[in-house]
Design a protein around this nucleic acid. Sequence first.
DNA 1: TTTCCATGAGAAT
DNA 2: TTCTCCTGGAAAT
Length: 346
Amino acid sequence: MPEGHTVHRLAHAFAELFGGQRLAVSSPQGRFADGAALLDGHALVGTEAHGKQLFLAFSPAPDAGADGVRWLRVHLGLYGSWTFAGDETFRAPHAIGAPRRRVGEEEVALASPDEPASPESPDEADDVVVAIEEAAPATDATPGATDAAPEADASPGATAWHPHAPRGAVRVRLLGAHGVADLTGPTACEVVTAEEKAAVQRRLGPDPLRPDGDGEAFVAAVRARRRAVGELLMDQSVVAGVGNIYRAEALYRARVHPLRLGRDVPATRLRAMWADLAELMADGVATGRIVTTRPEDRHDPEDRWYVYHRSGRPCLVCGTKVAEAPMAGRRLFWCPRCQRAPRRRP
DNA sequence: TTTCCATGAGAAT
DNA sequence: TTCTCCTGGAAAT
């Protein structure tokens, strides 16, 4: 899944692609028909990411008060992803979300401006090509796509663009003047009020990617618990946005053993880990990829991670075999030598 | 073709 | 701890 950096990318993408536009909102799959009806025809007036939660604000109905803003709350979970397509003015990556192969390739392409390239500016051209390839022959009316037409603000001279038929189980389709975003496989997708949104956020810990992310709150939350720090990093109420890759890699880079109890990790170590996460994740937002290895430790361009998914292979730094064990239902990876084992309690 | 698996999380046991 | 939900690409059959 999409860890927090992916969700922040999405918040940026939606603001840029659809900000201020009235959108046709539908649920081709049908499971979100009621929610879609509430948002259909309303303008996207704001986007926000907090940890792995994405919030999209829609303008209130004319007869609703000022606080009638409704939020679409989406959590991608393990499988969710957004797929984008549109005309040449619609500059979006092909897809953002669960790391299916197609998605990964696309994100790589976006992050490598030195790819050989097409005549025009590389990333823009790539997007358009993908969008065209993905477009199915414009079949007849997607329900919800033809009514509630978006505002006609197409720039003069832009070629006509038609959305492709939804592919797969599309929970939500957001259709603007220049492009479309399809959501598949989310864990959560619902329309909430501002108060309900705030309630969700109160349960979340600080997010290293947000300006209001409070590193000291993270340090205090970890040191208050006797649970293993490897579990605490995956607890969204301790730190929001960290997932299985950032957990393993941040612990490695801090040289902290995942089984060490939270309260036993020195505060200075945790402060450094927070700063490191902020940096790593910001890089993830910029590039769409998680890369945690320092250039000097990267023996091969494929060496993106120190320990994640490297069990049995030599540690890039010390050569010791990377270890793996399940923790809280997920696969956990660490280097037994670089990350010294915690003292065993008698 | 069937099965397995994944960057998640909440509920049930 | 284990189950359950959601999807689709890859690996296994």
